[in-house]
Nucleic acid binder design. Structure first.
Length: 306
RNA sequence: GGGCGGAUAGCUCAGUUGGUAGAGCGGGGGAUUGAAAAUCCCUGUGUCGCUGGUUCAAGUCCAGUUCUGCCCA
């Protein structure tokens, strides 16, 4: 079982593909946006012929208007992992959604899933009375979580209160998986690292290519569908900005520039997450490294280190 | 050539009646347990265009000068 992580546009998918071919394995995508059907260009999904050659899981599994989150991801991914392990097939998990990576590594707590009505109620209250109200309520029922969650961090306050209201127990009493240091499966963790300037060049080139490949038309098609996009899908880098262009908030050039900036931020965010992961074997990649070459290195140094 | 306005942080700009500068954006760092490509936190010394002058004290007033925008010839 191999788990490949790294910054966006760093070559994870291509390496996963090469390794899967060599090992005759299957790929599990760890990506919160590639799960959506018809969001292909902006999420840098593997090409249709690559999807033909190697079995990929967790790609195109929900509709763009569907809710998707970490809980759904784990519900769908864990049975696949269990089945492949039983069959003795190599698993190559690869992707850039760090929270899902952490979940695959250490598991998630056995607690209640999201509850839309409850969230709406809490959000409404927060917008009317301020997030401080939520924070002070959390302080009463779960001082530990309140100490960790900033009073402005609405999303975490809402989830913490949601768990409390649904179970009567503080979220901090559930949250014991992450940072446990125990891998749920015997993953070999592989990281792809690149120098920052080189990474930025690749990201800019990728954005340029996405636009040339028809990103704007792809987003147009998605928003033209009466069923629209779920909140999660509409947040994706490359989609959120083009939607603002459609709404007249930005010019196309501004939107494209914002996509580049937000891609860089995404990568920065990923770097911060990865720094906290233990036991990752990092490979420094250079501009002229090919996926085949990197796969050879991984086979020789990590998979079969004689 | 004449008139008016700009010139201050990488960018866009604030800077009150003179007391050696501050916002947004970008950049950097961090948190992160069912929204996570989300959300949140921390982080601002820069020849105040240049040269003189007035003043205890000038981004701020005065003179000159350079560049720049607009208007008039």
């Amino acid at each position: 079982m191999y788990l490949i992580m790294g910054c966006t546009a760093g070559g994870k998918s291509r390496l996963a593909f090469e390794l899967a071919k060599r090992l005759d394995g299957e790929i599990i995508s760890i990506d919160s946006m590639k799960v959506y059907k018809r969001m292909d260009i902006g999420t840098a999904k593997p090409s249709a012929d690559k999807l033909e050659v190697v079995k990929h899981h967790m790609i195109d599994v929900v509709e763009p208007w569907d809710y998707f989150g970490m809980g759904v991801f784990m519900e769908m991914a864990e049975p696949v992992i269990d089945r492949l392990r039983k069959e003795g097939r190599p698993i190559i998990a690869a992707g850039g959604t760090a929270m899902y990576i952490r979940a695959l590594m250490e598991g998630i707590f056995d607690g209640p899933p999201t509850n839309a009505e409850l969230r709406a109620k809490l959000e409404k209250q927060a917008s009317e009375e301020g997030s401080m109200v939520l924070h002070s309520r959390l302080s009463e029922v779960d001082p530990e979580a309140a100490g960790r969650i900033h009073s402005n961090d609405m999303k975490r306050l809402v989830r913490a209160l949601e768990v409390f209201e649904l179970t009567g127990k503080p979220i901090s009493s559930f949250q014991n998986q992450f940072r446990s240091g125990n891998l749920r499966y015997p993953w070999k963790l592989i990281g792809l690292a690149r120098e920052k300037d080189e990474g930025n060049r690749r990201m800019n080139a990728r954005v340029k290519k996405m636009v040339a490949d028809g990103l704007v038309d792809e987003v147009r098609r998605l928003v033209d569908d009466p069923r629209g996009l779920s909140d999660q899908a509409a947040q994706a880098v490359g989609y959120a900005e083009i939607i603002k262009y459609f709404n007249g908030e930005w010019t196309l050039d501004q939107a494209i520039e914002k996509i580049k900036i937000n891609t860089r931020r995404f990568a920065k965010h990923q770097r911060t997450w990865y720094r906290g992961f233990q036991g990752v074997q990092w490979l420094d990649l250079a501009e002229d490294d090919t996926a085949e070459g990197v796969a050879d290195r991984v086979m020789k140094d990590i998979i079969n280190p004689s």
